[in-house]
Design a protein around this nucleic acid. Structure first.
Length: 135
DNA sequence: GCCAACGTTGGC
DNA sequence: GCCAACGTTGGC
């Protein structure tokens, strides 16, 4: 099983909205690397929900409930989306600043490739962030 | 609001 | 197929 980190600006789509709706299509991705990462996802893979721009923190845990399928809003048909559902909020949000300050997380794709909206997370990184998030 | 990083586009 | 120009993302 793999784990992931997915970003959304809360003004566009927030964790609170996802919890309210119960599931959502992760649409609108227009980056090949992010798209490929979503193609690699499997059912019940887990993902961190990260608030970008405002909040700047990992705020919740999600699971993938539907595999990659084409995004109807992409007329060329190259980009797709997965369906996600919320699992639970972090007990404490894990701020970007805290991630940057943690030497064990220095290699995270989140830090090394800041603009990538869907990125892989290693098992060690996952456990560390869970710990920092109060689990 | 600025700007660095970086992905994409298009001319050659 | 290269690379300059341009657009977008996202932290500060």
């Amino acid at each position: 099983m793999s784990s992931w980190l997915m970003k959304s600006e809360p003004s566009a789509y927030s964790w609170e909205t996802l919890v309210k709706e119960g599931r959502t299509e992760w649409n609108g991705v227009r980056n090949y690397l992010a798209n490929n990462n979503m193609k690699a996802m499997k059912i019940s893979d887990k993902a961190f929900f990260y608030h970008s721009n405002e909040g700047l923190a990992v705020v919740g845990l999600m699971k993938i409930i539907e595999l990659w399928h084409p995004d109807p809003s992409d007329e060329k048909g190259k980009f797709g989306m997965v369906t996600v559902a919320p699992l639970k909020p972090m007990k404490k949000p894990v701020a970007l600043a805290a991630i940057k300050a943690e030497p064990a997380l220095a290699e995270m794709v989140l830090l090394r490739q800041g603009r990538l909206s869907v990125s892989p997370v290693t098992t060690d990184e996952w456990q560390k962030i869970m710990e920092m998030g109060g689990f």
